[in-house]
Design a protein around this nucleic acid. Sequence first.
DNA 1: ACCTGAACACCGTTCAAGT
DNA 2: ACCTGAACACCGTTCAAGT
Lengths: 213, 213
Amino acid sequence: MKGKETRAHLDREQVLAAAAGLVKQHGPGALTMRKLAAELGTAVTSIYWHVGNREQLLDALVERTVADLGEIRPTGAAPAQRIASVARALRRLLRDHPHLIAMVHERGLTERMFLPAQRALVHEVHAAGLRGARAADAVRAVQVHVVGHVLVERNRERAPVQRPGEQELWDARTAEQDPALARALARPPDTERLFALSVRALVAGLLEPPSGD
Amino acid sequence: MKGKETRAHLDREQVLAAAAGLVKQHGPGALTMRKLAAELGTAVTSIYWHVGNREQLLDALVERTVADLGEIRPTGAAPAQRIASVARALRRLLRDHPHLIAMVHERGLTERMFLPAQRALVHEVHAAGLRGARAADAVRAVQVHVVGHVLVERNRERAPVQRPGEQELWDARTAEQDPALARALARPPDTERLFALSVRALVAGLLEPPSGD
DNA sequence: ACCTGAACACCGTTCAAGT
DNA sequence: ACCTGAACACCGTTCAAGT
C-alpha cells in the first residue's frame, strides 16, 4: 500500500523523499526517525547511516526544497507595479510551502530562501531608478514585509477564532469616535486586499525621493 | 541554591513562575515537565494537578506575559513620526521578549499580543486623519511589518553566518551594473536603520491620499 | 559498504494509591 | 484537596555486531 518494491539498498534519495512526504503531510513535527524508518521499512538506525541525524536530515530537506522553488517572473509595466508583482509571487511561493518558513527560519537559511525573489527585486528596483545602498534597503524592506505578512496571515488561518474575541475589545471610546474603524478591526481582515494595499504603500514610500537631509 | 524554602503546598503561581524562569533562560523547548518538577522539588505528576498539562501551562505562561507587557506611549509631533514611534516601541517590546513571539504564534494569540500597540496605532492613525476601513488597514499594515521585521532580524542574529555566504551570490551581472548595490546586499544589514527607513516609507505610503479610483 | 537489534537517556501523560 | 511512584507509549542517538 505504501508502494514498496524490491530494493537492493536503501538510498539517501529515498530517505529524503519519504521525509519530505511526512513533512508535507503533517509538518516538521511529525517527522520522527522512527516513523520514517517504518515508512521505509527499515531499521531506525539505517537512516543514520545515510543522513547523519535528524538535524542534518532537516537541513538536507530544506536545501532541496529551496533549490526547486523556481524563478520569479515580474509582470506589469510601471516599476512600482513590477515590484509589487514580485512581492505577490514571493507570497504565493511561501504560501505554497507552508512548512518551509518555519524550517528555514529555525535553520537560519532565510537569506538562501529569498534568493530568487531577491534577484528579481534587485532587478526591478534598479529599473525603478534606485542605486547602491538605497536599492539594497528597498529590496530588504519588501522582503521583510512579505515574510511578516505571510506569517501573521498563516497564524490567522490556524487559529480562526481568537480567544479574547476581538469584538469586545473595540466597543469603548474608539467605537464612539469612529464606529466604522472599530467594526473594521473587529472583522477578520481581507488578507489579500491588505497585502496588496500595504505593499503598494511601502513601495510608493520607498521609491519616493528622500525628503530632507 | 535554588532558594527552596519550607513550603506547605505547591502553588499554581510557583509552577508558573518556575516555568517562566526556564523559558526565559533556555527557550520554550527547554521547558519539560520533568525539569520543571526537579526545579520545584516535586513529583512530575503534581504539576499536572495544578496546570493541567504542558499545553495549558504554556497557554497560561503566554497569557501572563502578554498581560504585563505594558502600555505604549507615542512620541513626536507629526502624525507620521508618532506612528513610527509606536512601531519602534512595538519592536522593542517584541525584542525584549524573544521567546514570546514563537509561543504566541504557535498558540494563535497574535491579536491578543498586539492589543496595546493596536490601541496606540488606532489613536495615532485617527489623529493623522484616516477613518474607518482605511484606518484599520493602516494599523494592520504597520503591525504586520513590525512582526516581519523582528522575525527576520532575530533569525539573522541567531545564524550570523549564512551558509551559502552571501558574497558569492552577488558577484555576477549585478556587481557589474551596480557594484555598490552588490556590496550593500553582501554586507549584513544595519537592522536599526533598515527598520526606521522601511517604517517611514510604509507610513508615508499609507498616509498619502489614495490615487486613482 | 550497508544494515541490524539492544540499550541508554530522555520525553508527556495516565492511573491507582496514598495522606 | 493535594501528592506520590509505577507504568505506558513515545522520542533521538550510540554501539557492537552482523553480512
